[in-house]
Design a protein around this nucleic acid. Structure first.
Length: 438
RNA sequence: GUGGGAGUAGCUCAGCUGGUUAGAGCACCAGGUUGUGGUCCUGGGGGUCGCGGGUUCGAAUCCCGUCUCUCACCCCA
């Protein structure tokens, strides 16, 4: 029998990797909740049409689809937003606004895997559906993403939120003489520019925009590096569409995260459904893909047969994020730990006093383990405690057990003390690493 | 879909101008240690050298095919 390996672009989560994944998810969930989002989930497969309706038939080649026994064309979800739109549409008249929902979902895309990009991955999605396109919602959305990244130790020197606006960009380009049919071409040029060398970009621009004068205007646009410069640069007709962006930056400043944010005209994002503000978050130094991307899509619900309702949201994948956090050595706390390891030199004493202690600690929610072999040397047992990353060893020895005392050893610094079992159990109520209260 | 790189122990890799029984470090198991872990020392288990074919007295090593992984391009929700 041939050995069967895991499928291309998928990952096995051994306990070590699972600890990292759970730690990421915990952080995502905590950030969502403290920013006022509530959690939802959708099925792992949907009708294929849910994805082709908005993105066209080409999308079908990039996702895993199947036909069920009833002849239904289905697809494993490659993203969450269409499902969200479907769910919200179904209850649009009974949901209190704003709808602030988040989800952590497992997604699959039939792509060629490469660095930061797999065929199965997880994505944290948050979406806000409000009554009108308030800049407060845009800001709250960006703030939530930054809030999470900040909470895991990424500082303003590590990451940058690059912000722009589709609506503003369209107005700006038109004011420079571009016509509607050219916008798509220019979007893709702007998107590519930071990723390719200047001479290659020039060649590409010459090919796609034959008019030298237009090309010159596009080059000048790209020198606009801040919202202030943009206001100065843009003609009167565009000012009105800059105003929401200007307001957004003002709000982000008041929320205390302007150090993380900057205007960037090269941010357009690929997906067609964005209508207003768009943003992406990058590591300032590395060549990694965007850690997070999102924006405003005011007609997404309408595209699926619902009402026209303004919405803003973002997605953050686990793959690039993990690479980034690993580069910055910020995954130290994402490890499996044991709270207590009980060590004994005589199994009779362990059975007499130790097993009930195990029960007491576990009842309190502490992870607790011990050696099954009965006759192991204490050195061995402490070795086990170390390899299981126990915070404390509880030593039950003949020297102390007659007076109902144990020796509590802090495995991190080696310090230890004698303490009565009764007092030890009382003391554990104060331990802050107690993670699963009953 | 296009192009580059790589497949040898669980992991990272050495060995490759063909030549004893295929190696190291890490990890794992055990001993050194009958009240104290992480270090150190000793020993052990673990490999059809991705798979198939060819050349040869002899192939991990050379040739052909094939599969897989990986990186980049395309695309990127």
């Amino acid at each position: 029998m041939e050995k069967i390996q895991s499928v291309k672009g998928t990952r096995d989560f051994y306990p070590e990797e699972m600890a990292v994944r759970n730690w990421l998810f915990d952080g995502w969930q905590a950030a969502s909740l403290r920013n006022g989002f509530v959690e939802y989930d959708s099925p792992i497969f949907e009708y294929l049409q849910l994805y082709t309706a908005k993105s066209g038939d080409e999308i079908a080649g990039q996702l895993f689809s199947l036909t069920d026994r009833g002849g239904r064309e289905l697809a494993i979800r490659p993203e969450t937003t269409p499902s969200l739109a479907r769910m919200v549409n179904q209850r649009i008249n009974s949901l209190p606004r704003p709808v602030k929902w988040f989800s952590i979902s497992r997604l699959c895309r039939a792509e060629r895997p490469q660095k930061g990009r797999l065929r199965e991955f997880f994505q944290w999605n948050t979406d806000i559906i409000s009554d009108s396109a308030y800049e407060y919602a845009d800001a709250d959305c960006i703030y939530t993403a930054v809030d999470y990244l900040r909470s895991v130790g990424l500082i303003k020197d590590d990451i940058i939120v690059k912000i722009s606006s589709r609506a503003m960009l369209a107005e700006l380009l038109k004011s420079q003489g571009f016509v509607d049919e050219q916008l798509g071409t220019v979007y893709s040029l702007l998107d590519k520019q930071p990723k390719i060398p200047p001479d290659k970009f020039t060649a590409m621009a010459e090919e796609q925009i034959p008019d030298a004068d237009l090309r010159e205007r596009l080059m000048r646009l790209q020198s606009v590096g801040s919202i202030g410069e943009l206001i100065e640069f843009a003609p009167e007709s565009v000012q009105k569409s800059i105003y929401p962006l200007e307001t957004l930056f003002h709000i982000l400043g008041k929320m205390g995260i302007s150090d993380y944010c900057g205007f960037d005209i090269n941010i357009v994002r690929g997906l067609a459904y964005y209508t207003g503000m768009v943003f992406e978050i990058f590591d300032r130094r590395s060549q990694l893909r965007a850690v997070c991307g999102g924006g405003r899509y005011d007609n997404l619900l309408a595209g699926l047969g619902g009402p026209s309702v303004p919405a803003v949201g973002f997605g953050m994948g686990d793959v690039v994020l993990e690479i980034l956090l690993r580069e910055k050595n910020l995954l130290d706390s994402a490890k499996n730990h044991l709270d207590f390891f009980i060590v004994y030199d005589d199994y009779k004493i362990f059975e007499d006093k130790g097993l009930s202690l195990v029960n007491s600690l576990r009842e309190k929610g502490f992870s607790t383990a011990f050696d099954y072999r009965r006759t192991s040397a204490m050195a061995r047992q402490l070795k086990m405690a170390s390899s299981q990353a126990a915070r404390f060893a509880v030593i039950l020895g003949q020297e102390t057990i007659d007076s109902d005392e144990i020796t509590l050893k802090n495995m991190a610094d080696g310090s230890q003390k004698r303490i009565a079992i009764k007092d030890f159990l009382k003391e554990t109520d104060k331990y802050e690493f107690q993670r699963r209260p009953l």
